[in-house]
């Protein structure tokens, strides 16, 4: 009798384990963003200590394009791009283009945080330099998708300077497969030194 109880209990457990799983659950952008929030923050405001820039409110097309670049290795595979190398596996963990699109739409819908500048650039000097940049990135730094130019007025100044340095040294945009990144290479050649980069970024921080 005792033995029969054990058998019945075992069969019950087996039946529970074999139950049909719940309906397929496809995570939405908000759920997928939980992975990103570990570094970029729940509001997309970024965390400088983790080399994670503010991303809230950036165009979904730009987020999507960059995630695909990280996934394919067009970004994040240069040995000197240490933060990019950290970002790449995150993009690789997204299973398909639909997930990338979902996450990009979620980030784009977040209110921009406009983080405070921390660098000491001269915005007045930078205004003259930015006149060239504005042909693609817009007078207000709002970006223009048709020219593959992202918004500049929604992220950290230190991140923008680092990216200018990366473009200058071809750490970014140097991969032959990164065609839109390569568009930036001739433009950063006009920036003489790091101070010029800080100046133009200081001006970008004043744009509304």
């Amino acid at each position: 009798m005792q033995f029969a109880k054990y058998v019945a209990c075992g069969i019950s457990l087996l039946a529970m384990a074999c139950q049909a799983p719940a309906e397929d659950h496809s995570p939405g952008g908000e759920e997928l963003y939980q992975l990103c929030s570990n570094c970029h923050g729940e509001t997309g405001a970024g965390r400088p200590v983790l080399n994670a820039p503010a991303i809230a409110g950036l165009g979904s097309w730009y987020i999507e394009a960059q995630l695909k670049k990280f996934r394919s290795g067009e970004r994040g595979t240069h040995p000197e791009d240490l933060p990019g190398m950290g970002m790449r596996p995150m993009a690789m963990s997204l299973q398909n283009d639909a997930q990338i699109a979902d996450i990009a739409a979620h980030v784009a819908a977040m209110p921009a945080t406009r983080p405070k500048p921390i660098l000491d650039g001269d915005a007045a000097k930078g205004a003259g330099i930015y006149a060239t940049c504005s042909t693609c990135h817009g007078k207000s730094g709002e970006g223009e998708q048709e020219k593959s130019a992202p918004a500049l007025n929604k992220t950290h100044d230190w991140y923008l300077v680092r990216q200018l340095q990366n473009f200058k040294s071809r750490v970014r945009g140097g991969n032959p497969a990164d065609a839109t990144g390569a568009q930036m290479l001739p433009w950063v050649a006009m920036l003489a030194d790091e101070q010029a980069m800080k100046d133009v970024v200081a001006h970008i921080q004043t744009l509304k």
Binding site: G73, T77, H78, E80, N175
Partner: peptide, 10 residues
């Protein structure tokens, strides 16, 4: 020359 690795890991 500095190699930019191809995305081999995936």
């Amino acid at each position: 020359k500095l190699a930019a690795a191809t995305p081999a890991a995936s």
